[in-house]
Design a protein around this nucleic acid. Structure first.
Length: 478
RNA sequence: UCCUUGGUAGCUCAGCUGGUUAGAGCACAUGACUGUUAAUCAUGGGGUCCCUGGUUCGAGCCCAGGCCGAGGAGCCA
């Protein structure tokens, strides 16, 4: 008999029809009621069995975590917790689960930290089931959004030879024998003998290659893994993460902000509709967690409120210069409550400053633009004031920077001048500069940290809990 | 990498001023139970107190070094 997913069973009208369902046992009560979950939805489905008919041998095998297949009739439930249930006629154990050895005991309320240690099993919890269903929806929505807009999904290389992108420390890729590498005349490692005939790394950004695509296809986006070998130990950094990088010809900074804001709202709204049960559950979970915190640290809005608010209101848009003025004149600064006081133009904003702007002053997502050029990357377009660049960062409550982007410098001389100032090897990036030499045009783009987006929508506090198998310093298990 | 903080049963935690045999809840095992909702009830087993060294008559507790986790900072998405 063909299997029916639990998500589909819940939609059916129970009329005693025969159905088959398969899934993992969440709990077994009174030797009679099995709560079965197959991951198609947050909800479990209740299977009722006749303990005498089933037999003691089979009864003992229905343990928490076991995988079973049940065939029986779909009936209206006599109990209160659910509207329908399956009266089992046939039960098959697809996979036994020894309860004494099974590390995931759901009734123990295992901590997120513990579940991270058994990441191969944590999908079987309500929380992680919900998180990864939402993650899937968000990924799908990103593709759908760009597809509707006529963007071309472009795959940029994971292995790159360029180490001049300046986005962070890189992981080396090599097939050389690290115990005994070949050396050149100067006694240095001879990468001519390496697999690619040169030194290579894992990508820290697909942006430069993305720009090349945009200079012909007009609008492209990438969505792929990105690697940074920074020794970052925070709730919002991973060594391996997924980044979405759109790059658009003929867009200026305003167009860039418009499409970034539109996209964020689109995907959040999409998830709110598609995964409302999961997000409701995650919202309750987040609320429980908030209650553990001291009153002062609690967020003013719940997860659902926060998501709906973000979708319904315009993001605040201010320049770096305006932000400095707000911060300099705010009571918080005057009372010297910032660890780093805001006194002069040109300073890099600290997390506490960004958080103040987003969480206290505007109380909604904020787009900061036109940063001093000294604190931003070489490829950002210089403003006429010679001091600032057409950068934009989108800051979200609780997460911080979720998007970083800019209008790109399309003027060859200005770009080369910046590269010299930043000590970048112009020769190595000749292919990049060619787009400015041959039919260049104004263009813009941004990078969106996918896991940070998933964090925002799921309300999960730690980025390690929104990617199946997190890679962080000293951790690459599974 | 820096600052703060933690590591005690399978899990979540308590453990007083350094003192005899280290506790609880849940989980697990055994038994009971045909309308349960984290089922319930009874009984039972279960410990490298993170590691190494030191102080002490005596260390889960004090000291030093290390390992690992969490929160914050920096770097950023």
């Amino acid at each position: 008999m063909k299997r029916t997913k639990i998500s589909a069973l819940l939609q059916m009208i129970p009329q005693g029809q025969m159905v088959n369902l398969k899934g993992w046992v969440r709990s077994f009560r009174n030797n009679q009621f099995v709560a079965l979950n197959d991951g198609s939805t947050l909800h479990n489905f209740q299977v009722v069995l006749n303990m005498k008919a089933v037999g003691e041998g089979m009864l003992k095998r229905i343990t928490s975590g076991a995988c079973i297949s049940v065939t029986g009739s779909l009936l209206a439930s006599q109990g209160k917790g659910q509207s329908a249930e399956v009266m089992a006629k046939e039960i098959e154990v697809l996979g036994d689960c020894d309860p004494e050895k099974y590390p995931l005991q759901l009734k123990n309320r295992p901590s997120l930290e513990y579940l991270r240690e058994i990441a191969h099993l944590r999908f079987r919890t309500n929380t992680f089931g919900a998180v990864f269903r939402v993650r899937n929806t968000l990924a799908y929505a990103v593709h759908q959004f760009f597809n509707e807009k006529g963007f071309v999904y472009l795959n940029t290389p994971v292995i790159t030879a360029s180490d001049a992108e300046g986005a962070g420390e890189m992981f080396r890729v090599t097939t050389l024998n690290i115990k005994n590498p070949p050396l050149n005349e100067n006694g240095e490692i001879d990468f001519r003998e390496d697999f690619f005939g040169r030194s290579t790394n894992l990508t820290v950004s697909g942006q430069l290659e993305g720009e090349l695509g945009a200079m012909a296809l007009s609008e492209i986006y990438t969505f792929g893994p990105t690697f940074r070998a920074e020794n970052s130990n925070t709730t919002r950094h991973l060594a391996e993460f997924w980044m979405i990088e759109p790059e658009m010809a003929f867009y200026d900074l305003n167009d860039n902000m418009d499409i970034a804001e539109e996209m964020l709202k689109y995907v959040i709204k999409y998830a709110l509709e598609k995964n409302n049960h999961d997000i409701d559950f995650l919202a309750k979970r987040a609320e429980e967690e908030e209650k553990q915190k001291p009153q002062q640290e609690r967020a003013e809005m719940g997860l659902l409120e926060k998501l709906k608010f973000s979708v319904e209101h315009d993001f605040a848009r201010i320049t770096y210069t305006e932000a400095i003025e707000i911060l300099r004149n705010c009571n918080h600064n005057k009372k010297k409550k910032f660890q780093y006081l805001v006194d002069s133009w040109g300073i890099d904003l600290q997390s506490e400053h960004e958080r103040y702007l987003v969480e206290k002053h505007f109380k909604k997502p904020v787009i900061l633009t036109d940063y001093p050029k000294a604190i931003k990357a070489f490829y950002m377009r210089q403003n006429d004031d010679e001091k600032t660049v057409r950068a934009m960062d989108i800051l979200f409550p609780g997460i911080g920077e979720i998007v970083g982007g800019s209008q790109r410098e399309e003027r060859l001389e200005k770009l080369e001048q910046r590269m010299r100032e930043c000590n970048l090897p112009i020769q190595e990036l000749n292919w990049y500069l060619d787009t400015r030499r041959f039919g260049g045009c104004p263009h813009a783009g941004f990078g969106l940290g996918f896991e940070r987006l998933v964090q925002f929508v799921t309300g999960m506090g730690n980025i390690r809990d929104v990617i199946p198998f997190p890679r962080t310093p000293k951790n690459a298990e599974f």
